[in-house]
Amino acid sequence: MPLPDKTCGMEDAVSRIFDGATVMIGGFGVPGTPFCLIRELVRQGTKNLTIVKNDANKPGMGVDWLLASGQVRKLVVSHIGLNANAVRMMNAREVEVEFVPQGLLAERIRAAGAGLLGVVSDIMIDTPAGAGRTQVEVAGKRGYLEPALTADFALIHAERADTFGNLCFAASARNFNPLMCMAARHTIAEAETIVPQGAIDPHAVHAPGPFVHDVVAMPELLEAYGVIRL
């Protein structure tokens, strides 16, 4: 009894994403960013998207392609300091930006993936940055209720996948990817290499197959994935 084969064509997988969807995108800077999936999303022109990502990449890369093509309604990010285009669009109110401290962004995504409604944290307690949050008391300590962050889709970049969707990430390319796999209702993972079931050591799986819906082969390793030469 083999495990299901989830391999899917790039165009078909990305065509599931609908106008107005919330889309999580893995990556911290270049490592772990699914540039091929993003490029296909730009090609299909899906509109009015809410993008959840750690950062907005650099100008001319990744999330910036979606911003330039006017497909993004809102960004939920920890920072956009490396993308002057994103900062300009935010200041011109061409895109709405919600900042979430990086660890809370990760934990709210993880919470959604773990089937929790939210987490309680004392980050930003009693500071203006924490304003507007719901305060709760747990065991005599005050904290904020941080709601779980869900999404319709997650776009993931893996170094290796098997056809069931077990994923391995390279070095610092892991970052938000395994968390977003868990949190989205539908997870699309591109992989540099797709191997048969059994070819990945069970100990070496970083994101288990049940969290992944589509496994997509990358047509090419775009220049964007490479080392940035200054």
Partner: peptide, 25 residues
């Protein structure tokens, strides 16, 4: 430089004996 190995500032760093990788949470 390894294209998949940067620090939080974007500098290309390396591993050393004992390095561990993990997710953002």
């Amino acid at each position: 430089p390894d294209r998949n190995l940067i620090d939080a500032g974007g500098a290309y760093v390396s591993v050393m004996p004992g390095t561990a990788f993990f997710d953002s949470a």
